[in-house]
Design a protein around this nucleic acid. Structure first.
Length: 155
DNA sequence: GCCAACGTTGGC
DNA sequence: GCCAACGTTGGC
């Protein structure tokens, strides 16, 4: 199947593009929202490309690209009592939460800020530009992907 | 730090 | 199964 495009949000204070650059690959842990879980478990495939978005940042925006290297599997932090992502209601034989693995691809020379996204033609329907769009894993169209790369000066 | 938006929980 | 209360997200 043709690769799909996504946008993953992360708070840079928790996990930034620089952390991923340093570690090369990472588990995308801690997603605790059912809609996002369904995407991680069922829809996101190996090879899919991902815009890395910094939320709760100054400024918020897209800072780079990563790629899915392992498809959805149970998020081990849900069973770890020491983790802030621990979920006492999740069963080992019926895990509630899933994660994927991603690898670093590139960091943009400069951030494509949320403000820029909102002011760019062709991105009017992009989920992240809509108010109240809190979903941390969002689908991105190929057209939106290309537009963002152009804005970043990377295409 | 405020608060709007929205998801989840729990009493009934 | 409704919905009020509560918690979280995340821009500003």
């Amino acid at each position: 199947m043709k690769n799909q495009f996504w946008l993953f949000k992360s708070e840079p204070k928790v996990y930034s593009i620089d952390d991923l650059k340093k570690e090369k690959t990472a588990f995308w842990e801690g997603v605790r929202n059912y809609q996002a879980r369904n995407l991680l478990r069922d829809t996101i495939k190996k090879g899919d490309q991902v815009l890395f978005y910094h939320s709760n940042a100054e400024p918020p925006g897209i800072v780079g690209i990563c790629q899915v290297v392992k498809e959805g599997y149970p998020d081990h932090t849900q069973f770890d009592e020491a983790s802030k992502y621990f979920d006492p209601k999740s069963k080992k034989d019926d895990p509630r939460w899933y994660m994927v693995d991603v690898k670093f691809v590139k960091k943009f020379k400069s951030i494509v800020s949320l403000e820029t996204l909102k002011n760019s033609a062709g991105l009017e329907e992009m989920m992240v530009t809509k108010r109240g769009a809190r979903l941390s894993i969002q689908p991105v169209t190929e057209k939106e992907w290309k537009t963002v790369l152009k804005l970043a000066g990377e295409s």
